[in-house]
Design a protein around this nucleic acid. Structure first.
Length: 550
DNA sequence: GAGTTTGAAACT
DNA sequence: CAGTTTCAAACTC
């Protein structure tokens, strides 16, 4: 099967390509978003790079290297008759493009990483899964089908389509996750915030919150893509060539590329601050100073930056810069906040009720004067408490103090209104949370990560993975249930993520990691997050397919 | 809107 | 690794 022409085509169609080709794509993710991934590199990821894509890395005779890679990963199922037709149509053009792309491999790997990272945001994964229009386009019908399927058979669906989609688009947002959206929390948040139309990250990730939504949208998009040109039309505005094909791609691109979208994105961002527009004057938006760049998204209309290079037009430059930065600090583009996705989401809403229990800033802050009570503080900005990783002075972080003192004014303040005193504080006292997050996440985490990355990067499992696995294992057993009981999950997660656990996992390579080779794939879904149930659902299935080898 | 403050990022 | 500089966001007025 794998050898079949169809298969090749399909592979060649990978979402990334389209994105890439499209100038418009806003998120780096699509482009490269390697960073986050790398950071969290799940074993999975590494494995990808290491084993799978590595070979291809530099040039990818796209079809060849990639195809193979894909084949490995992708289940034959993916090939769907439906898809084929469209694919074939598209193939000609796409394939060629693909081959052209220089960093294709990198991108792929990156994207994969992203996915992994995504773990950070399960939602993302889910989004990818659900939304990724481009992909859909590629496989149009097939995709549609897959999209729909998830509803019924998530696992299946995931295996099939998800992977690619994610690869192509996600970034991350991560990556950046973080920033764009809400400063705080990350992708999820972004998603939410931008859900509607933001471009940058927004569209792509927008699925976020509800699976339902996501599915619908995805479905819708698919449908539209097929049926309605109208929708996509916009996408096309770009006037790209891809266009023709199915519109689904267009959709994706649309969002990203079309100026319109951008604007929308901007709008959303503005109001909410969800996605930010930067105001860089001297960094050319090619440094982490730039929020957009840091978040893995291209600068768009709303940005007030000067001499901005963070645009699709300068994709190469952006990528190169990213690589450079990553080489310096593999975690540079990783989500700044690790831990509970939920928390993120919730922050916006009633965050309080659902506190990000374990969420913590990756590196911790270093505040001297703000007492961690202002947005200068990344922890505070992210809506998470300070942890032992922080070197802040006079910490009074409302979300949780470094010293572990429980909680926070913020909670109090906010809570007062919303929750009422109940759960949060008592239920999830900061002290507990902190430790959880701390160990694995930050400094330690980093160290581990690096080791893995650099050292055994290839296949070694990372902490993140460990987490995922854990989560996965739990989840895998009862996805639905989990979904249903998000919060419960929270508790569970706490347990799971408990420092002890994490440490163990992280430290003892042997233990679990080993067992889950494939899990890895699945695990990718949601590494650390305990997300809300739904996300988990989606996500879980979503990434499994990624697993390259096994 | 201009100026100041702040702390992360980058540089040495 | 520590100290310094640069940068842009956050904040203040």
């Amino acid at each position: 099967m794998q050898n079949s022409p169809v298969f090749n085509y399909i592979n060649s169609l990978s979402p990334i390509k389209p994105v890439r080709s499209l100038p418009i794509a806003q998120t780096f993710g699509s482009l490269s978003y390697s960073s986050p991934p790398s950071v969290f590199t799940s074993p999975h990821v590494s494995s990808h790079k290491g084993s799978r894509f590595k070979s291809d890395h530099n040039h990818v005779p796209a079809s060849v290297g990639e195809d193979e890679a894909l084949r490995e990963t992708e289940p034959p199922q993916i090939l769907q008759n439906e898809c084929t037709t469209d694919l074939l149509k598209m193939c000609d053009g796409n394939v060629k493009q693909k081959s052209e792309t220089p960093d294709w491999d990198a991108m792929i790997s990156d994207s994969s990483d992203i996915l992994i990272l995504d773990s950070v945001n399960d939602s993302e994964a889910s989004r990818c899964f659900l939304e990724r229009p481009s992909d859909s386009k590629t496989r149009s019908l097939g995709v549609a089908k897959s999209t729909l399927e998830p509803l019924m058979n998530i696992d299946d669906a995931l295996h099939r389509g998800v992977r690619r989609r994610c690869l192509g688009f996600e970034q991350t947002p991560v990556a950046s996750s973080s920033r764009c959206a809400v400063p705080s929390i990350g992708l999820h948040f972004n998603t939410i915030a931008m859900s509607s139309n933001d471009n940058n990250v927004g569209n792509e990730y927008s699925l976020s919150g509800n699976i339902k939504v996501g599915l619908q949208s995805s479905i819708t998009s698919v449908l539209n893509s097929q049926d309605n040109v109208g929708v996509s039309e916009t996408g096309e505005d770009a006037g790209q060539g891809v266009e023709e094909g199915p519109k689904s791609l267009a959709l994706v691109e649309l969002n990203q590329s079309s100026p319109k979208k951008k604007r929308q994105f901007g709008q959303a961002g503005e109001g909410e601050s969800s996605c930010k527009r930067c105001n860089c004057k001297r960094s050319k938006c090619l440094k982490l100073y730039c929020e957009c760049f840091a978040a893995g998204v291209y600068c768009i209309g709303p940005c007030s930056c000067v001499d901005c290079f963070n645009k699709p037009i300068h994709e190469d430059t952006v990528m190169a810069t990213r690589k450079q930065i990553e080489s310096r600090n593999p975690l540079a583009f990783a989500p700044k906040v690790i831990g509970n996705s939920d928390s993120i989401m919730e922050v916006g809403d009633d965050a309080k009720s659902k506190t990000p229990a374990s969420a913590r800033h990756k590196r911790g802050c270093n505040c001297k004067k703000s007492n961690c009570l202002k947005k200068y503080c990344e922890c505070y900005q992210s809506g998470v408490g300070c942890s032992i990783n922080c070197r802040c002075e006079g910490c009074k972080n409302a979300f949780g103090r470094k010293d572990g003192s429980s909680f926070t004014s913020m909670d109090k303040e906010n809570e007062t209104s919303s929750r009422g005193r109940t759960e949060k504080q008592p239920s999830t006292p900061m002290p507990l949370r902190q430790p959880l997050a701390q160990l694995p996440i930050s400094s330690n985490n980093m160290l581990l990560t690096h080791q893995h990355l650099h050292g055994a990067s290839g296949s070694s499992l990372h902490m993140s993975q460990s987490f995922r696995r854990q989560d996965m294992s739990l989840m895998s057993h009862s996805k639905i249930e989990i979904i249903t009981e998000e919060r419960r999950a929270d508790n569970i997660e706490n347990l799971i993520e408990s420092p002890m656990t994490n440490m163990i996992n992280a430290l003892s390579p042997n233990s679990k990691r080993l067992s889950l080779p494939h899990v890895v794939g699945s695990s990718e879904l949601s590494p650390w997050r305990r997300n809300g149930g739904r996300k988990l659902l989606l996500s879980i299935p979503t990434f499994p397919s990624l697993t390259p080898h096994h």
